[in-house]
């Protein structure tokens, strides 16, 4: 493996890791606060992607400036996150907070199944490809190989922004501190008067929006097909479990590990590429059972 190939593998891994991070960080936030593993998270990713593509097509059809497709990506994510997220949290999740973990998980599993068919009914089965934002930014030549600026610059930049932004949000703003408090100790937070219902809603919406943003940002790079949500879910689970539940910085590191691992595997041992996320997760958990940055759960006696 020459330095040149290692450099290429790193570049490839970065963009992939950025997307996975965006989805996984939403999942880990939701788990940290609501203690629910949201199987429908992949559906937010997929619907965010489809909506972004639809908006792009509408912009082109309306003859508007193609640069509007960039804000359209953000708009798609926000719409999906707020509308769908609020709907699911208020109409369904709210009723199962007091139920068993298994049932909560299955509720999200049921939502996932329903949303898979909703996607198909709304957008059909043909692959969608709306690459306008990517095309607008052109290519860059690195080491004799062409990369798209979108992939090399935009995706990692947005992921970094989200990482920093979330850190600031969780540590400095009031809402963020409330979320952190509920994550640390739900009972105590309730005891001091925090409106946990509101915190749950806000967290879920933020998590869903982040997943949808991942999807929206991914949509110019790839062909959107039914089932894309299901594949993303497992990957995000792997990242979240590796990172430790509720850990934002950990999710970034785990996403990077998995993204780079995967792209290096394509160069070194292509046949193992699909196994990388699960192998990383299994290995990390065998050494550190709570995840890389996980906090050991207190046991009741």
């Amino acid at each position: 493996m020459t330095w040149q190939l290692a450099f290429l593998a790193t570049l490839d891994g970065l963009a992939y890791a950025a997307l996975v991070f965006m989805v996984a960080v939403g999942l880990t936030l939701i788990f940290g606060v609501l203690r629910i593993l949201n199987v429908a998270h992949g559906s937010f990713y997929a619907i965010g992607a489809y909506l972004a593509a639809s908006l792009g097509i509408a912009i082109a059809a309306g003859g508007l400036s193609p640069w509007l497709t960039f804000p359209a990506l953000i708009l798609a994510a926000v719409l999906v996150g707020t509308i769908l997220g609020t709907l699911i949290e208020r109409a369904l999740l709210r009723y199962v907070y007091l139920k068993e973990d298994v049932l909560q998980l299955l509720v999200t599993f049921a939502v996932f199944m329903i949303l898979e068919d909703v996607q198909r009914l709304v957008w059909g089965v043909n692959p969608y490809f709306e690459a306008v934002p990517l095309r607008l930014l052109g290519n860059i030549s690195l080491g004799g190989i062409f990369y798209t600026n979108y992939q090399i610059l935009v995706l990692p930049a947005v992921a970094l922004l989200i990482l920093v932004g979330l850190r600031l949000f969780l540590r400095t703003t009031l809402a963020g501190k409330l979320i952190t408090a509920v994550t640390e100790d739900r009972e105590m937070a309730t005891a001091i008067g925090v409106d946990t219902g509101r915190v749950y809603l806000i967290t879920f919406v933020i998590g869903a929006t982040l997943a949808a943003l991942g999807g929206a940002l991914a949509s110019p790079t790839t062909s959107l097909v039914p089932g894309m949500g299901a594949d993303m879910i497992v990957l995000s689970f792997a990242v979240v479990a590796t990172a430790g539940l509720g850990q934002v910085e950990g999710a970034a590191l785990a996403a990077l590990l998995i993204g780079l691992g995967r792209s290096f595997a394509v160069y070194l041992m292509p046949e193992l590429e699909v196994l990388v996320p699960y192998l990383v997760m299994a290995l990390v958990l065998l050494v550190r059972p709570e995840g890389l940055f996980g906090v050991a759960q207190r046991r009741r006696i």
């Binding site: 593993l37 998980l105 196994l275 958990l285 059972p289």
Partner: peptide, 27 residues
């Protein structure tokens, strides 16, 4: 290995191993 873990990690580790098998069977 797996009985050392509980709840979410138990579920996720089982998931990971099953996906490894799935990938091997396909590959």
């Amino acid at each position: 290995f797996v009985v050392r873990y509980r709840y979410i990690f138990f579920a996720m580790l089982n998931l990971a191993f099953s996906m490894v098998l799935f990938s091997i069977l396909e590959k």
